[in-house]
Computed example of a mutant assay.
Amino acid sequence: MTPSRLGVWADCPRRFRMAYLDRPTPPRGGPWAHSTLGAVVHNALKALFDLPVRARNPEAAAGLVRTHWKDDGFASAAQAAEFRDRAAGWVHDYVADLDVTHEPVGLERWVSAPVGTIVAEGRVDRIDQRGDEVVIVDYKTGRHALTTDDARGSQALALYVLAARRTLRRPCTKVELHHLPTGTVAAWEHTDESLARHLRRAEEIADEFQLATDTLAAGGDPDILFPAQPGRQCAWCDFRRSCADGQAAGPPLDPWAMLAP
């Protein structure tokens, strides 16, 4: 049970069906510029730790952004170049404050564990060893700075904690959201109680879509079992072209509309 799968169901059951059950999968929309930007930053930071320690410096990190850069989803080459330079600056400044001599326990590390009635799994951006515990680090490149409430309320990060404990066989309670555009870190220290709350909610969501999936396989009506949930998210849904309800909810966004001003 990955956080993305849980999130898609909570966002829109019809989108869940199109993404995970319909075969052939309906055609998806084109690339989004903000997604391209985020992927490049993640790839650059991962590649940084593939370098020898002596070569891990802010200038090298910025250069890796340019090496991994793509223009997918941007309005023009000029706009892409502007955000390429912005991203290089974010990564440069981030690495300037980072102890690059410390080797992460994991980079883009897949973790998985049976917990409760589900198997929680996913890919973690970075896992640090700090003292006797490991810490879950998630890179963010969105428009807005993040808060402690964002870290505390993230179901994805909570599930990563549970999965990392089992995969790595090490204690883990702390999660961090590293927002590169602002250079801020939002952190939260989970307790067994807070993790149990996240797990219960994940189990409830999993039960919901598993029942719908099983009923569909038995001949149930897909439109009843997987109803659309029209809303502002329809403007950027990958399956908008295959969903009349989504199209009726409002006009689509341009692929670069979710970039920071």
Rank of each mutant, 00 (worst) to 15 (best):
T117A: 15
A206T: 01
V119T: 13
D50H: 04
V175D: 06
V119W: 00
T36N: 12
G89F: 03
H144Q: 07
R130Y: 10
P230E: 06
P251R: 09
S4C: 04
Q210G: 12
E203N: 06
L48I: 02
D22E: 14
R169N: 12
P230N: 11
H190M: 02
L51C: 09
F16P: 04
A206M: 00
G29W: 08
L157V: 03
G29C: 09
G63W: 09
Q229N: 13
H179N: 00
T147S: 15
D125Q: 04
L6D: 08
I224H: 05
A212Y: 03
V105W: 10
K174W: 14
E121H: 13
F209A: 04
A260S: 11
Q233N: 07
A228Q: 10
S194V: 01
H179T: 05
F83N: 00
A60T: 02
A228V: 15
D85V: 05
P114C: 10
L216P: 07
A151L: 14
E82K: 11
V111Q: 08
G30C: 11
A217L: 15
W236S: 15
V40A: 06
C234P: 01
C243E: 13
E203D: 11
G106Y: 15
A10S: 10
A260K: 14
L107M: 11
G116F: 09
N57G: 10
D238A: 13
T173G: 02
L177W: 06
G89Q: 00
V105R: 12
